[in-house]
Write a protein that binds this DNA or RNA. Structure first.
Length: 439
RNA sequence: GGAGAGGUGGCAGAGCGGUCGAAUGCGGCGGUCUUGAAAACCGCAGGGCGCAAGCCCCGUGGGUUCGAAUCCCACCCUCUCCGCCA
């Protein structure tokens, strides 16, 4: 259940084309259609037999009350009849269970169709919607008139004693950096400042969720089965370490019918994020650009369907505000159908410029899932009192992902003498510290 | 982790194996009355599938039975006491 059976029957062509646009196999659409057909036939037959069996069973009680001998031949015959019906029902139910499992499997492999305004194609089709700030060059001229080169963040971090990758590798493994001294405080400052802005200025409700979730929650947001390999699993207790706060926070309202008056519901939550990132290594992932554990503040919204498109723009702007106040140059990229992922209908990536590595770093991803996640999680709302429940739309966006923001900050604010200037908005959170210098 | 109790509709809370999708109270919605409101009274109202008839849902999954909210088993969760512990 993801795109919804009703929509699948109504516009199979559009769903098929959407799958192709996202680089998925459209054959699952037809497989699902065929299974749905079979399921409905079996269900109808089983329902008819059940109705019959219910009537026969009921007559047993009625006749006994009317004076028939419970152990007599009349009752025995009715019982035999009911039993025969029951056997046939059981048979149909077994078949039905198989078909439904297959249908479920097929539906899970049908991607969420992208919005009409999403460019079709691969990476080349991504569109830079807007850019803010001046991307600094790596080669620059220092105050003394001498040329200097901005260094990558791992060199800055190691030199200042605020980032310790080797010891992180020792105590856990590669991709588990240790932040130290002003580095640790910077991490804590960013988390606090992000949350403060979201809560006091943007009206988000702050949430501090569990960092481990059960399988039902992981399935709800689509980590299972799509991204199961990405998660760390606590096998002993059948729990998963969260890859993002999106998982616990969106599941907050799983299996609930919300009040229309309560919408929109908007949460901001900090969690550490754990990702296996199997097979990822090399120049693209040096330093803290791609790690197994990082910190992130996530925004999650539950909206009325008619409001979700506007909510995505709003949400993206909330993340941009943070980058602007940090003084980091960034660009907003509308991701193409092939790049946006399986469950998103529309997605913007925010990329901050890191002059030391001369790259745009993805520090936020803001997406509208429309009713796709809501259907999996049965998150509904009642448009009017007494009206039938309808699916809400869910959205989420990073605001922001810490490790890469730290990388961009260190590389942007480094000085020729090796120190790093602390952006003004963070100073109150760092005890007034204006500059991180070598001890 | 051990012992005990329990999980029923938004909440509280009944429910002899058959007429229970489920009493009752509160809350909700609509109405009568009222200048208005409250009170009182009357009525409506769970979720899913299906065009409909009808079928399914009483923590979850199995089982017994012609028939299970009601009996049996397993698991999950909650509460109380004990143990442990930040």
């Amino acid at each position: 259940m993801s795109v919804g059976l009703a929509r699948l029957r109504e516009e199979p062509d559009r769903i098929r084309q959407s799958a192709i646009d996202k680089g998925e196999d459209p054959a699952v659409v037809d497989a699902a259609l065929a299974l749905d057909e079979r399921r409905r036939r079996l269900l109808g037959e089983a329902d008819r037999l059940r109705a019959e069996r219910n009537a026969v069973s009921k007559s047993v009680g009625e006749r006994i009350r009317a004076g028939a001998d419970p152990n007599g031949p009349e009752i025995a015959q009715i019982r035999a009849e009911a039993r025969a019906l029951g056997d046939r029902i059981a048979e149909l139910e077994r078949e039905l269970a198989t078909v439904e499992a297959e249908l479920e499997e097929a539906l899970l492999r049908i991607p969420n169709p992208a919005d009409p305004d999403v460019p079709v194609g691969g990476p080349e089709a991504n569109v830079v919607v807007r850019t803010w700030g001046e991307p600094l060059p790596r080669r620059a001229v220092g105050p003394d008139g001498q040329p200097w080169e901005r260094r990558p963040h791992w060199e800055i971090g190691a030199a200042l004693g605020i980032l310790d990758e080797p010891r992180g590798a020792k105590i856990t493994g590669s991709g588990f950096p240790v932040y130290r001294a002003a580095g640790a405080r910077l991490e804590r400052a960013l988390i606090n400042w992000f949350l403060d802005v979201h809560v006091s200025e943007h009206g988000f409700v702050e949430v501090w969720p569990p960092a481990l979730v059960n399988a039902a929650s992981a399935r709800g947001t689509g980590q299972i089965p799509d991204k199961e390999e990405q998660m760390y699993v606590v096998t002993r207790d059948e729990l998963y370490l969260v890859p993002t706060a999106e998982v616990p926070v969106t599941n907050l309202h799983r299996d609930e019918i919300l009040d229309a008056a309560d919408l929109p519901i908007r949460y901001a939550a900090y969690t550490p994020c754990f990702r296996r990132e199997a097979g990822a290594a090399g120049a693209e992932t040096r330093g803290i650009l791609r790690v197994h554990q990082f910190d992130k503040v996530e925004m999650v919204c539950f909206e009325k369907p008619e409001d979700s498109a506007a909510a995505l723009e709003w949400l993206t702007a909330r993340a941009e505000v943070l980058l602007q106040r940090l003084g980091l140059a960034y660009r907003v990229v509308l991701m193409s159908t092939g790049e946006m992922g399986f469950v998103q209908a529309k997605k913007y990536d925010l990329e901050a410029w890191a002059p030391g590595v001369e790259r745009w770093l993805e520090v936020s991803s803001c997406s509208n899932f429309r009713d796709y996640q809501a259907r999996r999680m049965a998150i509904r709302y009642r448009p009017e009192p007494g009206a039938k429940p309808e699916l809400v739309h869910t959205l989420n966006g990073s605001g922001l992902a810490l490790a890469r923001v730290v990388a961009a900050l260190l590389e942007t604010y480094q000085e020729p003498d090796g120190s790093v200037v602390v952006p003004g908005v963070l100073r109150p959170y760092m005890g007034g510290l204006e500059r991180i210098a070598a001890a």
